[in-house]
């Protein structure tokens, strides 16, 4: 090993250390008996036991999952229709649509959340689940759209026309031709929107109705009102769930629609999934 590659390797390791050290400490502390995250380390599963008796935290977790599921499903449906419809639009309209989608990515969530809050006030409503869900859909939708957009371009219009001229109705064509092509991107897009919603604190913080909490809101109030080690435990579980979802989504893609000639689907999936986050490149 020469000096330059030793240096390169060291730099990569340092960056990964910076990225993972605090997360590793968090996970370790969730198994530590100390109430104040102090050393020496003494193994205990006490905080996990406490966690499963903490009704408020469990209810918040359930709320987060439900909201994220609803957001994911709504976003995939809207985004699929949106990209299919956009194909029939003029260039100019397509570009306008693209800017509108990117706008919701660029405007800080703080501003989107507050403006929705003001809209609720202007309409003289009180905060409710409908607007909470609407807020989540607005911030998660662009991720589904960008995931689908890349895929829809690989859709060959000739195939749809051929299917039509062979006597298939529009629904049959959609089911047999369009859907199979879009399916991987729909999984990726739905997964992204689910995660954006599940992790979101800002929108929920502004729009959650009184008495309704989500997991990030519970974590925030635990931070605000003193440390509780149960938060270490719940955070560790969230990290586990996130990684599990990521693995499942990647695996589904590989099993369901393995394309001949396209190797290494799993890391491609990761790039697909992170690609929408580089929004201004598109």
């Amino acid at each position: 090993m020469n000096k330059s590659s030793f240096f390169s390797g060291g730099l990569v390791l340092l960056a990964l250390l910076f990225l993972y050290a605090p997360i590793a400490v968090l996970i370790a502390m969730s198994f530590n008996a100390s109430k104040y995250n102090r050393l020496p380390f003494e193994f205990s599963t006490r905080w996990y036991q406490d966690l499963f008796q903490n009704e408020a935290l469990l209810a918040a977790t359930w709320n987060s999952i439900l909201i994220a599921l609803a957001t994911g499903i709504i976003c995939v449906l809207l985004a699929t229709l949106l990209v299919l419809g956009a194909q029939a639009l003029s260039r100019k309209m397509q570009r306008a649509l693209q800017s509108a989608t990117l706008m919701t990515l660029t405007v800080p969530w703080l501003i989107l959340g507050l403006s929705l809050l003001l809209m609720i006030r202007a309409l003289d409503f009180s905060k409710n689940l409908f607007f909470l869900l609407a807020g989540h859909v607005v911030i998660a939708l662009p991720y589904s759209v960008l995931a689908l957009q890349a895929r829809v371009q690989s859709l060959d219009p000739a195939l749809e026309e051929a299917s039509g001229s062979l006597g298939a109705g529009p629904l049959t064509t959609f089911r047999r031709v369009t859907l199979p092509t879009l399916a991987p991107a729909m999984v990726a897009g739905g997964f992204l929107s689910f995660m954006i919603s599940f992790d979101n604190f800002v929108i929920s913080y502004f729009l959650a109705p009184f008495g309704f909490t989500t997991l990030p809101i519970e974590i925030q109030s635990a931070i605000k009102f003193g440390f509780t080690p149960e938060i270490n435990a719940v955070s560790t579980i969230i990290i586990g769930i996130s990684l599990g979802c990521l693995a499942v989504a990647g695996l589904l893609l590989e099993l369901g629609v393995s394309q001949p000639g396209k190797k290494n689907n799993r890391s491609q999936f990761l790039l697909d999934v992170s690609a929408p986050k580089q929004y201004n490149k598109t």
Partner: peptide, 8 residues
């Protein structure tokens, strides 16, 4: 880490 919670 893109897929870990901001607050976490």
């Amino acid at each position: 880490p893109f897929f870990t919670n901001q607050l976490v």
